[in-house]
Amino acid sequence: MNTKSLISGGVCVFIGGCFAISAATSLKIGTSTNMGPGYFPFSLAIILMGTGIYIAVKALTESRGDFRFDVNAVPWRGLILVCFAPVFLGLTIRGLGLLPSVFVTSMISGYASRTQTFRLAFFVSALLAVFCALIFSYFLKLPIPVIGPWLNI
């Protein structure tokens, strides 16, 4: 049994299943002569599930079972910080303004690496904040405040 392929197959069936159920319950499927908005996606979702089942069944017959999901090999710290950084920017760019928001986002993402030093992170973030303000606000003239209303008390 090939565990990795088995999981992969399961993921396909899951994604296909979500789309198929959503299409079947909320969209009109129709017939091939009179197709509804759900017809094409529903067909694709079924084919995806089929592919997933094929991958999974084939995995059962394979003998290589050397896959172990190593939780320690996943760079969790990086994963969380790197994913949080864009979300933070989205939440604060209006309120804080481009300059401070970019600075903090850059600091957050800088620490994704275990070998980061404060000096490098600070230096890069400061430079990046000024550079972004120049490019996006002055050069491309995007309607984003450089310093936002939250800081103008």
């Binding site: 986002t105 980061q116 972004c132």
Partner: peptide
């Protein structure tokens, strides 16, 4: 280490 923040900030501000 210096590249990661640059990539993320450009991606984020750009998409936004």
């Amino acid at each position: 280490n210096a590249l990661i923040p640059v990539i993320i900030v450009f991606c984020s501000v750009g998409v936004y």
